[in-house]
Every structure is written in C-alpha cells, then in structure tokens.
C-alpha cells in the first residue's frame, strides 16, 4: 500500500431526481459524485477510502480504457450496492471510516480514467447524505520508484569511499553505542509491568481551577 493518496478532483455531488423541478418536500435518494484525475491520466487503483456521512449503499463505477479499441473507453461496475449502514434508519455505520480494496472489487480497476460514486439512502429520516474525505490510493507500479524508500536511492555506491572528514572515529562510536545498547537491555529486563502512575509534577499537585477546552 502506498502512503500518499493520488492527486484527484472530487466533483460536487449531483442529485438524481424525477422530473425537472427540485421541490422541498421530497429529498433525493441517490447522489452521484465523480472523481477525475489530472491530465486525463489512467491509473491503477489499489484502495478507495472515505468517511461516510449517512450513505446506506454505495455503488462504484469506473471508466476504463478499452484495450480492444484504441482511444475508446467503457464503463465497468466495481462495486454494487455495498452496504455502509446495517440499518438505513439508524445511526450505526453512518459516520464511520471505510476502505474498499482492489481485491473486493468485481472488476480489477486498471487503466481507470474516471471513478463514479453512486450513493443511495432509502431512508427518509436523514436530511442529507454524502461521502467525505474520499481518497484513492494507487498500486505501486512495477518500475516506479515509490516501492523503494527514499533513503535507499541515496546510498553511496560501494566503490566510492564515503567522505568521513570531520566525523568521529567509527571505532569509538560503535563501542559507546554498544554500552548504550547494554544499558537498554538491563533496563528492559528490570522493568516491571506495573506503571508508576505519577500524577504530580515534581512532587507538586497544587491545583486551583480547571481549565476549559
């Protein structure tokens, strides 16, 4: 899994309604949110994570590049009516964090150019529903550098002797570290499971008033 989410644009949700006029009396039960990638880039998705806000069911459709036909795209359904709230009328799951992994999807999300979230809430109890903090994580590519931690790529090649000028003698450093290591070992063996549980600061616990948050 990669640590940073992919750059993407989450568009405003569009309500799906019958007829043309939006009335106050009825609230829509379906919202659609699109997520696009910069420069029409095609990506390979590993994980989708988000925070729910009163959405009961989630369907995810993706627009992928058609391998058979150069330059054309097709729609695939990766997730169908995934249940986010066990009971749409009650709170459970309503504000929880979720992750949908590649393995859970019906179709492998490769070469994706657009992700469409279709949110459904059959209960009329809620004034609004949406998904928050939508983040997409991409598969680390086979040749991408992301797989290799940054510090590894900066290692000095073996044939080039490192510049040691101004640094202390490696021998003395290693011997002092050994002593420190021995000390920590001793500490660890002597440690008891019970915490000391001090609540005072340097023996003082004179408190006048409580402070507000």
């Amino acid at each position: 899994m990669t640590d940073t989410p992919a750059a993407c644009t989450v568009k405003a949700a569009v309500a799906l309604e019958l007829g043309e006029t939006v009335t106050d009396q009825s609230r829509p039960g379906v919202f659609v949110t699109d997520v696009t990638f910069p420069h029409g880039q095609a990506v390979k998705i590993q994980e989708i994570s988000f925070k729910n806000y009163y959405t009961a069911f989630l369907t995810v459709r993706m627009q992928v590049r058609d391998a058979a036909q150069e330059g054309s795209c097709k729609w695939v359904t990766c997730l169908r009516n995934y249940r986010l709230m066990p009971n749409p009328h009650t709170e459970q799951g309503s504000q929880d964090y979720y992750s949908i992994y590649r393995q859970q999807m019906l179709v492998e999300p490769d070469d994706v150019t657009l992700v469409r979230f279709i949110l459904r809430q059959p209960s009329a109890s809620w004034l609004n529903f949406t998904l928050e903090e939508i983040k997409l994580y991409l598969c680390p590519g086979e040749d991408s550098e992301k797989e290799v931690p940054a510090w590894l790529s900066h290692l000095t090649p073996v044939d080039q002797p490192p510049d040691l000028q101004g640094l202390p003698d490696p021998q003395s450093v290693s011997s002092s570290i050994q002593q420190m290591w021995a000390l920590t070992e001793v500490m660890q063996t002597q440690q008891t499971a019970a915490p000391i549980g001090r609540f005072d600061v340097d023996g003082c616990y004179d408190v006048k008033l409580l402070s507000y948050m």
């Binding site: 600061v201 003082c204 616990y205 004179d206 408190v207 006048k208 008033l209 409580l210 402070s211 948050m213």
Partner: peptide
C-alpha cells in the same frame, strides 16, 4: 475527556 488543569501559577 478528562478535565485538565495547571500546577499553581503555571497557567
């Protein structure tokens, strides 16, 4: 959340 305070005059 547990209430917080400060020792003596160290507000």
């Amino acid at each position: 959340t547990p209430p917080k305070s400060y020792i003596k005059d160290k507000q």
